[in-house]
């Protein structure tokens, strides 16, 4: 049950075909204002799986709406919100949601693996940030040194 219950992050990285997404969109639009939760979710999930950033954002938006509208679906939704935000690169948001879910379901495999992924990304970016900062310092240092030398030479 639990293994089938939620998709892994990997699933979110495999985009759907444009035609498939179009089917979901058509279904979503055809139901109008009284759209059912499943239809809305299907479209939102399809959007999150997409590679386009705008689609992903829209997907997260719909998920937020589902979260607000259907309290009985909130527990699931938190995971998708975490996943969506992870894909968007909003790691702090992703972590906020995911930690909430882990709080409720410490044994949730999907949430745990997502946690790892988020940590990894944050670490990588953090490393790069340090690298950049140090690189920039180095360059400025070199330039300053060069300037300094030049100035000295002029003198």
């Amino acid at each position: 049950m639990s293994s089938e219950y939620l998709p892994y992050a990997v699933d979110a990285d495999s985009p759907m075909k444009e035609s498939e997404l179009a089917v979901l969109r058509r279904q979503f639009e055809s139901e109008g204002a009284y759209v059912g939760v499943q239809t809305k979710f299907n479209y939102a999930w399809g959007l999150i799986k997409s590679e386009k950033r705008l689609d992903q954002q829209l997907g997260v938006r719909y998920l937020t709406e589902i979260f607000k509208q259907y309290p009985e679906r909130r527990r699931e939704c938190v995971y998708y919100l975490a996943l969506g935000n992870y894909k968007l690169g909003n790691y702090s948001e992703a972590r906020r949601y995911n930690e909430l879910l882990l709080d409720k379901e410490p044994a949730n495999l999907q949430a745990r693996s997502l946690q790892q992924l988020i940590d990894d990304k944050v670490t990588k970016e953090g490393m790069l940030g340090v690298a950049i900062v140090s690189g920039v310092t180095l360059v400025t240092g070199v330039v300053a040194a060069a300037l300094w030398k030049g100035l000295q030479r002029k003198r």
Partner: peptide, 16 residues
């Protein structure tokens, strides 16, 4: 966000 009721659903959204 923290108001998450324990609701039993017969199927998950993903299964749907």
């Amino acid at each position: 966000l923290h108001d998450i009721p324990d609701a039993e659903n017969t199927y998950s959204l993903f299964q749907g």
